[in-house]
Design a protein around this nucleic acid. Structure first.
Ligand code: MN
Ligand code: MN
Ligand code: ZN
Ligand code: ZN
Lengths: 144, 144
DNA sequence: TGTAATTTTGCAACAACGTTGCAAATAAAT
DNA sequence: ATTTATTTGCAACGTTGTTGCAAAATTACA
């Protein structure tokens, strides 16, 4: 994962590549993503970072990152929205997160299984497939 | 699908089988589920049924149906929660909705593809799988 | 069928979440 | 360094979801 300094530098490059100004909030939020091993939801940022930035700013920042292909959403069955950082293949114009997500019923963490590809699905005739989301529920490695 | 009278009768049986009182609200909500071809979310009931029942009652009714295995949730990437009626195999103690869900990007409808089984997933070592949720995004038959 | 016991509903009040407009602060461009 | 463009924080507001409680409806039972 690298030192804090390396991470900060990496984040600066990532933001500039996405044509985004490098601001304290954006850097801090990306740091939290990179230091966390699971997906994060909106309320996590207030918990993890204290009240160091405004709720509104967090909403706007996540929205911007989403549009730029820096983070992606993960489906849930509750009213929360979870986000995780994308791999380098994602761009402003196209997301490529073809991996499986795992939700641990014990610790509650949601993680990207980057090495686990989503399988082929055979749809009924007449349906056009654009992308497939897979979320596996169970018990994760750490909780077993 | 049957006549309205047949549906009402079916709903009465379903409720009694689940050891639930047969109330106007419950019958009405199940009717809306059965007459809709897609999944419904909370706000749909207020739209479809006018203000004929209270918001709180809808929340409580959906919660009850969920616990009794009458409906199941479908994952989303926004703050909504979608529900659809279960097939007969689901019980109070165990859900068996091993089918794929489809979200149409054109009409916005989410449907259960009851005939499309969720595929096998090979998880990394150390993970225990309990169940798999699959949501396919694309364009549905009617919108094509 | 009538009455008592149980369950469900609707209301009020509240808390949490999410959005918008706008002025002040910050970052980028020159 | 100054100007220009972007981002942030605040206030205000609307929406969504929760809880306690009394009234109403349903069920159980005589
Ligand atoms: Mn992911
Ligand atoms: Mn379904
Ligand atoms: Zn875990
Ligand atoms: Zn459609």
């Amino acid at each position: 994962m690298g030192t804090t300094k390396q991470i900060t530098e990496k984040i600066g490059i990532l933001l500039r590549d996405s044509k985004l100004s490098v601001t304290e909030t954006r850097v801090k939020i990306l740091e939290l993503f990179m230091k966390s091993d699971g997906a994060l939801e909106h309320s996590d940022f207030e918990k993890l970072a204290g009240k160091s930035f405004d709720r509104v700013t967090v909403y706007r920042t996540l929205q911007t990152f989403l549009e730029k292909g820096i983070i992606h959403k993960i489906p849930t069955t509750d009213t929360s929205v979870r986000y995780a950082v994308c791999k380098s293949e994602c761009t402003e114009h196209h997301h490529h997160d073809h991996h499986v997500h795992f939700k641990c019923e014990t610790c509650g963490n949601t993680t990207c299984l980057d090495e686990t590809d989503v399988p082929n699905i055979q749809l009924p005739k007449g349906y056009a497939m654009h992308n497939v989301e897979v979320v596996v529920n169970g018990v994760c490695k750490s909780c077993k």
